[in-house]
């Protein structure tokens, strides 16, 4: 079970937020591409991109929350996170996706696809962790 309650959506998901890539380039959050994450992780000494596949999406403990179960990395380690419906994840080759694209668009003006079971999300782990 998830260990903590969902956190409020942080400000950097608001459309127009300025994001700095690992090479110093600045982009708006809505303009980020899969390659930006991959390239940034490649030149990071500490962080590694993992593929995290959505395996289940269940209701959370509060009305606006969901519990998402991911299979992380090559070993498909099971990780659950509880987040707000509007929390966006970046899906490989697709872009921002959330469990409630309407809410994400309304609250943050960030265009989203619907996050579905089987989607493969960008996630991070520390290099060297096993």
């Amino acid at each position: 079970a998830p260990s903590s309650s969902p956190v409020a959506l942080p400000p950097f998901f608001m459309r127009g937020s300025i994001i700095q890539l690992a090479d110093g380039e600045l982009k708006r959050v809505e303009d980020l591409k899969t390659e930006d994450f991959i390239h940034s992780a490649e030149i990071s000494s500490e962080l590694k991109i993992d593929s995290s596949t959505v395996e289940r999406i269940d209701d959370g403990q509060t009305p606006n929350a969901v519990v998402i179960q991911f299979a992380v990395g090559e070993l498909k380690a099971q990780v659950c996170v509880e987040v707000l419906l509007e929390y966006p994840f970046f899906v490989f080759g697709q872009g921002w996706s959330s469990c409630s694209p309407d809410r994400t668009t309304r609250l943050f003006e960030l265009s989203c696809a619907k996050l579905c079971v089987g989607d493969v999300c960008v996630s991070l782990t520390l290099r060297g962790l096993r």
Partner: peptide, 25 residues
């Protein structure tokens, strides 16, 4: 084309969930 001075700049990794499969299961 992007003015960084008067607006906050967030690091790219802030946007990515940190899913570390190292917790006890």
């Amino acid at each position: 084309n992007v003015e960084p001075r008067s607006v906050p700049v967030f690091p790219w990794h802030s946007l990515v969930p940190f899913l570390a499969p190292t917790q006890s299961d």
